[in-house]
Design a protein around this nucleic acid. Sequence first.
DNA 1: TTGTACGCGTTATCAT
DNA 2: ATGATAACGCGTACAA
Lengths: 342, 342
Amino acid sequence: MTRPTINDVARAAGVSKGAVSFALNSRPGLAPGTRERILKVAQEIGWTPSFRARALSVSRALAVGLVIARPPDTLGADPFFPSFIAGLESVLSEHDHALLLQVVADHERERPSYRRLVDEGRVDGVFVTDLFVDDPRPALLAELGLPAVIIGPALGKGIWPAVGVDDAPGIMGAVEHLVALGHSHIAHVAGPHGMVHGHSRQRAWSTALLRAGLAQGPCIEADFSAESGAAATRQLLDLAEPPTAIVYANDLMAMAGMSLAQSRGIDVPTDLSITGYDDTEIAAHLQPTLTTVSSDVIGTGRAAATRLLELIDKQPPTDIVLPPARLVVRNSSGPWRPTHRP
Amino acid sequence: MTRPTINDVARAAGVSKGAVSFALNSRPGLAPGTRERILKVAQEIGWTPSFRARALSVSRALAVGLVIARPPDTLGADPFFPSFIAGLESVLSEHDHALLLQVVADHERERPSYRRLVDEGRVDGVFVTDLFVDDPRPALLAELGLPAVIIGPALGKGIWPAVGVDDAPGIMGAVEHLVALGHSHIAHVAGPHGMVHGHSRQRAWSTALLRAGLAQGPCIEADFSAESGAAATRQLLDLAEPPTAIVYANDLMAMAGMSLAQSRGIDVPTDLSITGYDDTEIAAHLQPTLTTVSSDVIGTGRAAATRLLELIDKQPPTDIVLPPARLVVRNSSGPWRPTHRP
DNA sequence: TTGTACGCGTTATCAT
DNA sequence: ATGATAACGCGTACAA
């Protein structure tokens, strides 16, 4: 009833432990016949190498970690992680690595989280998400000697490789789309300036306006939450000259903003155009359907996992090309109409 | 630069490996002074026991698994997992257990996933979610000898303990709320009948109607997705006698349904009342705000983790009481008005 | 190909 | 009562 070990296989096949190990890892130095026989016996006995023994022996954890630092309720609304994790998994499982997940409420608790992962030797590397400007984590991880891959737009040259869909093309696409519809007063509801994806999306919005030869519209910093999206929208609509279009840094804020506008009797898109970012499942089923930016999140996960495994094995980086984020035009954006508001 | 081992500590403290181990695990048989000295030295050297070595030695993985079988895009819209995982983590980390996550696209791939977890000895137990009626997984896990805790409403007596907020009170609360508002033609957009939480919510709806002395309203089976929620709503509204209120099995379908109704010029809640389930972050920011059911998901995670660890250690179950799911009344539900539709 | 040391704690057996 | 010693768990890798 107890699990078979490598010794059982060796005995049954009439060879040594070492031979079995060689056969399993398909390493040279075994007669083809022997190799086959060993594998067949292993199959019959139903032996799979013990991950624990292997991990101890090779001094590797055979696992990587993902530490998510966010209040759980904010997490629930984020469509990123599930898909991202699915992408990670698809690569990791092929390389016999497991994904170890930790969710901590805030960045304070993130540090000890990494420490423990390292101290106990639980993981061989980690993914770092939600990077903020001047984030201390890359340096901390370097100090701990733990390989890492940063998820998100690369902000300057870093210690670690960054993997992620560049969000600029998507946001710029949104602005261009609105400009083409005749809008010239285009606002932005941004993510926190301190977070790189908040930052980069805002910069993309700003750059796009510049390129279109338009004046910078109003920009309000929010925090990706529905609450903050609604509040930001309220501020924008209360301006002396409210914008005719708003580019949101994510779908959740866009949805909250759209609802707020509607509750004030403002019609979307007749009176106000709105774009989101993420292409959440619900986006296509709102009233009106939401124009938003879609990116290959699963692909990002795959790329990140691939890169981290390479980093761990000290292999040269594969060049992985991800399709750029693209605008999905729906009904929340429409032509600008030079009418008077009530 | 290499990690300190138990030997380093033993040498520095002038004792044997065994003594250090005893000190660490606070086991009897050491003079108080010795114990303290050892711990102090360990602290100074910065030694933490290697998880790998310990796992091999105690023949335990010191980790538990969560296998999520869902297409990633459906996952993204589900607010359950992030909070649930946060709850799991808070308990697991205190007991030095890690959470190993796997996301597979469908149930076909779930089976091999468990096999690998077991064969490699990666985990000591698993959480089973999204249980469906006559689910083969509990039996499979029993056969594999892998302790499990089922997440969700207990459907009959099972091999494994079930942990989860009972959804019946919440759904019944929604129906009662609608009845109190004067509605008598209350429909249900259900989750898949084959899934226990789809099933149990539908039963709760049905029971509540019965208790209120009302006729069973129309019920349409959907699959928790926005798409299916919209389709089901379309069917309901096309009935000769459309319902005046719809109870949805989750927020996502409710949102899609609400949008669909609005796109047809039906006012919510004036012409149609709507309730959801989950209390998603966006629910409070929709137009109108969504009446829905809220439950303690983090608490569920904590309870599940506690129970699984007990199961693994063959300890008697702690009795954990979770607050029942409760209705959060907002603006998508209102009094029934006996008016004619256009 | 085989034999064996090794990785690193845990625990049962012994000695004082 | 204290603490040392050695076997053990299970693959991997190198010398023979």
